[in-house]
């Protein structure tokens, strides 16, 4: 009885400590990521906005204006681009968390896991805020209609954050053991930009192409996001459970590798 209680209070105490550590890390990462000026925060919104603008212009030039199934043009692009960019940011920032904060591992209660969680919290929050500001701005300015199913949009936003976390942990584990993988991350993410349904919908493709691209979980979240956002767009061949398995699987492998190869890391 008393043992159970003390274990529980120990658990509570270590939870408080871990909360304090993550809080401190998030604040420190904000400094590192955005600097002291508010210009840094502005850039977080400007980067995806610029990309949306560039691709919108490109579409104008080649004369293709309306996406399928009656989706509005700008929110169609914005949902795809912001989701893709945020996934990439969450994953790559998380996988770089340990390398750039190595000095902080000196403190007993700062673990590699905390370093990654700190960045996940910051990047995830940034994603959701940027998403709301850009699409909300679009609604106010008349470029976009409000979301058809706000609750499912919110749910999908969380799925995106968690998928980014899983991929980030996997990427961290892989680059830790095979540093050359880093060279392939840039081309990999560029490939993902063109194969994740940022600029098209699954339905537009021939069956054979659909079957291949359906392996890509990023395509799933982008399609799910649009199904939640636009009225009259149904979920077609993609599913939350597939994304869920990816999240669980990649997080599991990532954490397993971290544990297995822990001793290699601190060799220096």
């Amino acid at each position: 009885m008393s043992i159970a209680r003390s274990t529980l209070s120990d658990f509570g105490r270590s939870l408080t400590v871990q909360g304090r550590v993550v809080h401190a890390l998030v604040l420190r990462e904000m400094r590192g990521r955005y600097g002291r000026s508010s210009l840094g925060y502005l850039w977080a919104i400007l980067e995806p906005l610029l990309l949306v603008g560039v691709f919108a212009l490109g579409y104008q030039l080649i004369g293709r204006r309306s996406p399928p199934q009656g989706m509005e043009f700008l929110p169609f692009l914005a949902t795809g681009i912001i989701t893709y960019l945020s996934l990439r940011n969450i994953a790559s920032r998380m996988s770089g968390a340990i390398e750039s904060n190595r000095g902080l591992l000196l403190y007993p209660h700062v673990t590699p896991f905390d370093l990654m969680i700190g960045r996940l919290v910051l990047e995830g929050a940034t994603f959701i805020v940027v998403f709301v500001i850009i699409l909300g701005g679009g609604v106010i300015l008349g470029y976009a209609s409000p979301p058809d199913d706000p609750l499912m949009v919110l749910v999908t936003l969380f799925f995106v954050v968690l998928l980014g976390a899983g991929v980030g942990m996997l990427q961290a584990a892989l680059t830790m053991n095979f540093p050359w993988i880093d060279y392939f991350m840039k081309p990999f993410w560029r490939l993902m930009l063109w194969t994740s349904g940022v600029f098209f919908t699954l339905k537009q493709l021939p069956m054979a192409a659909q079957d291949i691209l359906l392996w890509n979980p990023i395509l799933h979240v982008i399609e799910l996001m649009r199904a939640a956002y636009f009225p009259g767009v149904d979920i077609y061949r993609v599913s939350y459970s597939y994304v869920g398995w990816w999240i669980l699987g990649s997080a599991f492998i990532g954490l397993l590798c971290e544990r297995m190869f822990r001793d290699r890391r601190k060799e220096k």
Binding site: A24, R28, Y107, V110
Partner: peptide, 8 residues
Amino acid sequence: RFISRIYG
């Protein structure tokens, strides 16, 4: 600031 926060 960081060290103060983690040690409370």
